[in-house]
Amino acid sequence: MSPKRLIARLDIKGHRLVKGIHLEGWRFLPKHPNAYCYDYYLQGIDEIIYVDAVASLYGRDSLKEIIRKTTENVFIPITVGGGIRTIDDAHDILRSGADKVAICSQAVKTPELISEVANKFGNQCMVLSIQAKKNTSGRFEVWYDVAREKTEMDVMEWARKGEALGAGEILLTSVDMEGMEKGMDLELIRQVSQVVSIPVIASGGLSNAGDFVKAVGEGADAVAVAKAFHYGRVTVEQIKREAAEQGINVR
């Protein structure tokens, strides 16, 4: 089995770390985002994902400042998403020190941006961020604009299209499970992992080490953890130890 990655996800509003439920109702966390990030780095996290939670045009400088400061003492890959609308936005974020960009809303609006970013900076740089929500008939639909706007698009279809357009990875967030700490949406993870051949990062709902094992079991290549880390419910080491005991290849 290929190695599986454990990622810390930090949602940012202005210059603060926030955490919500279903991507809304943001609450501020006490310490500076860089402090959380550095702590996870020392614990042996494999990657960092920053998401601008409000994706506003304002406050971009504080996001770049957070990235810049992160690169001073955190030497692992950094993905940044939220509010990237153009190839210049992507370039700007990469120049601040990010290794990859995650694009959600603008990819829905202008899918060709996926190809532009992939062609210019390489597929490995282009993470397609998908906000998925199950509708009443049990189908997973694509949402965007921080899960406020809905499309009729099927998540599997969109994932496949994203891969064809040049995305190198998929950041798959279950809006339903996000912030709930009741486990991840395993059905969603399984379905998406089956239809694409690029790595899938599962996000939303992890509450304990067992959830990592389950997500990987359904095909996730990586799992992103937010709340459970920020609130100290589980540590990097606990997840990795449990995963290793279950025969999962982790660093």
């Binding site: 290929s2 190198g168 051949s197």
Partner: peptide, 15 residues
């Protein structure tokens, strides 16, 4: 190779 079971391309991983 793209046919290595469980290994994806691009290879984005710690090895």
């Amino acid at each position: 190779p793209k046919d290595m079971k469980g290994y994806k391309v691009p290879n984005i991983n710690w090895h």
